[in-house]
């Protein structure tokens, strides 16, 4: 009973950003239209590319199309745009409203985590919906095998955890980067690029793929989606799953450390 009540309380905090969006039907429609348009254009683009030139990416046309379309859905995992509601960490720090976070019987980092999980879950629901539609109309192929599906699901879960930490780290970093929205934009772009969401990483030159393999971003998308389309065979994905797991651990340590510093910055330097 009390556990239920506690869960209900967390749920109502977690859903705040989603409420911003669903309470404005215009925004929901806008997001849906934009997503559909992006998916369609991406699909057209990769169809056209495969029509003109053969590639040595190791991806068949169907694989590349699925990868690219899912990449568009991946961008939705960031959740609703909070900046419209003046509710990003950077905005709270800049306006001095972050003080209120320190006056509640809920640690700022726990509050932030609840909100971030809520945002991501909401984005995930959109991505799943979009995926099912794409599957139905044939823009995305089915998983190559039952094994691939299961390994993919595990990898997807790990990828979500990695993504959560990446987004949270970027968010907390804005305690220091407050006056630099440009930097935040560049980081967001780099995240998507190295994750493979802008174009499948298999098409990039070798040095780029090497660089990317040393970064955490591809764990959030490239690895699971490659397992899904069969470019990474499910049987030999163990190493990739371990890499994802390691990133989960490492990034959670980084996030902890950053929150410690951010908290100290507020209580010592006043935000």
């Amino acid at each position: 009973m009390t556990a239920m009540a506690a869960a209900a309380r967390r749920w109502r905090v977690a859903r705040i950003s989603a409420r911003y969006e669903v309470s404005q039907p215009g925004r929901v429609t806008g997001v849906a239209v934009q997503l559909a348009l992006q998916i369609f254009l991406m699909w057209c683009l990769w169809r056209a590319l495969y029509a003109v030139s053969p590639t040595n990416s190791g991806l068949s046309e169907a694989q590349a199309l699925a990868y690219a379309v899912l990449g568009v859905l991946y961008t939705r995992l960031r959740g609703p745009d909070r900046s419209i509601a003046e509710d990003t960490v950077a905005q709270h720090v800049r306006e001095g409203r972050i003080s209120y976070w320190f006056l509640r019987p809920l640690e700022p980092r726990h509050y932030h985590r609840l909100r971030a999980i809520g945002d991501q879950a909401y984005g995930f629901a959109w991505a799943v919906g979009g995926y099912l539609v794409c599957l139905l109309v044939g823009l995305v192929q089915k998983p190559v095998s039952a094994t691939a599906l299961w390994v993919f699901l595990v990898s997807l879960l790990l990828g979500q955890v990695v993504l959560y930490h990446l987004l949270a780290i970027t968010d907390v970093a804005t305690f220091w980067l407050v006056d630099n929205t440009g930097v935040i934009g560049i980081i967001a772009f780099a995240q998507s690029l190295f994750a493979g969401a802008i174009a499948p990483l298999w098409f990039f030159p070798g040095w780029f793929q090497t660089l990317s393999s040393w970064l955490p971003f591809q764990s959030s998308f490239h690895i699971p989606v490659s397992i899904y389309v069969g470019r990474i065979p499910a049987g030999s994905a163990a190493r990739d799953l371990v890499v994802q797991l390691l990133w989960c651990l490492l990034l959670s340590l980084v996030l902890r450390w950053l929150w410690g510093r951010a908290g100290r910055r507020v209580i010592v330097q006043g935000g």
């Binding site: 705040i16 911003y20 309470s23 419209i84 509601a85 509710d87 306006e95 001095g96 409203r97 003080s99």
Partner: peptide, 9 residues
Amino acid sequence: QRTQLWWDL
């Protein structure tokens, strides 16, 4: 002048 309320709720 600094609200603790959620701006769009």
